[in-house]
């Protein structure tokens, strides 16, 4: 259980303890978000160098395969981002056919991206997602994939939505924490 943060002890980290679900949400994070990772995301996501998806594609796909799940969903980007960036940074890592983005963002665009907010502002973000049409989630174990786990707000919003719609379990997978 927990957010996947690298630590030397087995207790829940401070951030997880602060969540009302008391860290029952489980996230797998493959790498620590450090300076090198920051530069990677600058170049890949913000500068838009889509080629760099290859750097972590194999690692991410391997991690997905290792999970015991029925369905993979990646966290979506807004239509505006899709219009300017031209790609979803999470979908970029996953092989074609592996993910089906069934979540949609409610807003056309984000006034302030998550990466520009502080912890308080992030935590107050309202549910940004909705489920389109009737997706059969009943009894399914879902893996939810995102790029970075920071406060856990985005992940929990998406997970809550999936659980409401009948998912059996929701596990998170992020490249970095």
């Amino acid at each position: 259980m927990g957010c996947g943060r690298a630590q030397t002890h087995k207790r829940l980290c401070q951030d997880c303890q602060r969540w009302p679900d008391n860290g029952t949400f489980h996230n797998i994070a493959l790498f620590t978000y450090n300076d090198a990772m920051h530069r990677y995301f600058q170049q890949y996501k913000f500068q838009g160098d889509y080629q760099l998806r290859r750097v972590f594609a194999a690692t991410m796909q391997q991690a997905v395969v290792e999970q015991n799940i029925d369905r993979v969903l990646s966290v979506p980007v807004t239509p505006t981002t899709m219009q300017t960036r031209g790609f979803n940074q999470v979908t970029g890592w996953l092989a074609a056919g592996m993910n089906q983005t069934e979540l949609f963002t409610k807003a056309k665009s984000k006034a302030v991206p998550q990466s520009k907010k502080d912890r308080q502002a992030r935590l107050q973000t309202p549910q940004p997602f909705e489920l389109t049409t009737a997706v059969e989630l009943a009894g399914q174990r879902v893996l939810l994939v995102d790029d970075i786990y920071t406060t856990g707000r985005t992940m929990r919003h998406a997970a809550a939505l999936l659980m409401e719609n009948g998912a059996k379990t929701v596990t998170g997978l992020t490249l970095a924490r």
């Binding site: 500068q47 838009g48 160098d49 889509y50 080629q51 031209g86 979803n88």
Partner: peptide
Amino acid sequence: KKAQLPQQQFYCYQCLNLGRISTLT
């Protein structure tokens, strides 16, 4: 292949440092 974005779009990976150029811009 290298310049390919999803949905039949393309970007230039050569002059990226000056701000990305793509078929979306």
